[in-house]
């Protein structure tokens, strides 16, 4: 399996610098779980960050800071286990990699999908970020996603199956960055359903009247 569509360097830089909001970061981090090449770029960008920190002109700290730190290290060590849910019962080869799987509480088989129409299903993903929306989409094999354009940026990460549009074919691990200039009509490849993570910073605009009418009802 070769990943051929990667996040742009800007997106990786924002992820490394910490300026990317949680929802976008979820898509980037899940891509990273599948892409050693981008992890390497991330390591390089982190090294640049480390160099910048080393190179900055120091600002004197308060005299008692060190003592406070030592006191804090001696204090009862609060359990630093992460707040993530404990390991789920995914099989040996989960379709959803971390960190995405924990956000959903389990792998694809355990999810309670909601019907989206045209045979497609979706599942909103709760995050702490109110300005963007993350959802898992499941498009039946060989079927189109309703035609839509974007009010803003959309990241789509394929996790299972594949989809194609005018910009290419996207399989597991491939990440598509689309903005309002792209009016695309993705279609799931034959063979298996296409499951993907979609993150948007504005509601999708569906073109068909039918889709537009149900849009408010299904929250997409």
């Amino acid at each position: 399996m070769t990943i051929s569509h990667h996040p742009g360097e800007e997106l990786l830089l924002d992820y490394v610098a910490g300026s990317l909001a949680e929802t976008w970061s979820l898509a980037v981090a899940t891509h990273l779980a599948l892409c050693p090449m981008c992890r390497r770029t991330v390591s390089e960008l982190e090294a640049v960050g480390g160099e910048l920190v080393s190179a900055v002109a120091p600002v004197p700290v308060e005299d008692d800071l060190y003592d406070s730190i030592v006191a804090a290290t001696n204090a009862a060590h609060e359990d630093s286990v992460s707040s993530r849910p404990v390991a789920d019962s995914s099989g040996p080869n989960p379709i959803l990699p971390e960190p995405l799987r924990s956000y959903l509480g389990g792998d694809v088989d355990s999810l309670e999908w909601r019907r989206l129409g045209l045979g497609a299903h979706q599942l909103p993903i709760p995050t702490g970020d109110e300005l963007t929306t993350a959802r898992l989409l499941r498009i039946p094999a060989g079927r189109p996603v309703p035609t839509h354009s974007h009010g803003g940026l959309e990241l789509t990460l394929v996790l299972s199956g594949a989809f194609s549009d005018s910009t290419g074919t996207y399989g597991r691990g491939d990440l598509q960055e689309a903005d309002e200039s792209i009016d695309h009509q993705p279609q799931a490849a034959l063979g298996e359903d296409c499951i993907c993570l979609a993150v948007t910073d504005a509601p999708l605009r569906f073109k068909s009247l039918g889709a537009r009418m149900v849009q408010p009802l299904i929250g997409i």
Partner: peptide, 8 residues
Amino acid sequence: KSNRPEPD
């Protein structure tokens, strides 16, 4: 006060 998703 936000999470930073990271691969595991």
